[in-house]
Amino acid sequence: MRAAGVELSDLATLEAESIHILREVAAEFEHPVMLFSGGKDSVLMLHLARKAFAPAPVPFPIMHVDTGHNFPEVIEFRDRVVAEHGLRLEVASVQERIDSGRIQVGHELESRNRHQTVALLEGIQQNGFDAVFGGGRRDEEKARAKERVFSFRDRFGQWDPKNQRPELWNLYNGRHKKGEHIRVFPISDWTELDVWRYLAQEEVDLPSIYFAHEREVVEHEGLVMAVNEFFPLPDGAEARIEMVRYRTVGDATSTGAVRSTATDYHSVIEETAVARVTERGATRGDDRFSEAAMEDRKKEGYF
């Protein structure tokens, strides 16, 4: 049977599936929280959450795992979004934990990627969150490609990739015991291109660093790094001013930019459609430790 006008576009379908997941969690869990980094995936996720519950406000707080190594534009964006939409923001601070001695660091500018896990898990535990929305997408990385939408975490926040719950149809099983929690990935099935097309269609505001701008950069171990307090110019290297934008937003100590002239959505989409390198491959120092770097970090409780 084929009735007129009952086809949904791919983006509308993805949107509907994500909203279903968001509502399911809001209905079944006592204390959900949404991770919000200010990156495009968390911006998308938050935008979907606002739509899922409109005209009521988003019925859960957001949490930022703050490494202290952020791009200032991103923090400014975060605070603006929180104020604009009247959201409740929790900050799980890595810096605070370093200052209080809970986290040991070798030197001030070393990667805080692994330390994020500690802050994240403590933030979850201290607030008693039982469901944690993450903006992970399966197209990002090979370990993420393996994860369920509802992903069970034991008391230590750990993921067991060899023992995931079956997940059929859209019947999600979020049951867990006290102290355990569920990571929920409502945008699992979106690709990088889908995200850009949708954000453009919805005219969603993003941190300015996602669009091409001039910046002082230096090429370092295959990444285009912005030179600033978090990434001082290495000895003997030479900085240049170039037009760049970011494809992902992580720590300023380890996230690279890409050379680009795309200053608006339309041109970013064009560039994304012909990109030959994955977003993480192009920009993330932290994923390069080993072949299974992401899987290992996820097992420990990473996003």
């Binding site: 399966r138 197209d139 370990a143 490609a145 393996k146 060899k162 690709t191 899987e295």
Partner: peptide
Amino acid sequence: LLTDGLRAEREQGITIDVAHRY
């Protein structure tokens, strides 16, 4: 190897869990 992304899968040369690709 494009879909067998888990360490255990690569070691054993088999697929253990579903991978989604687009």
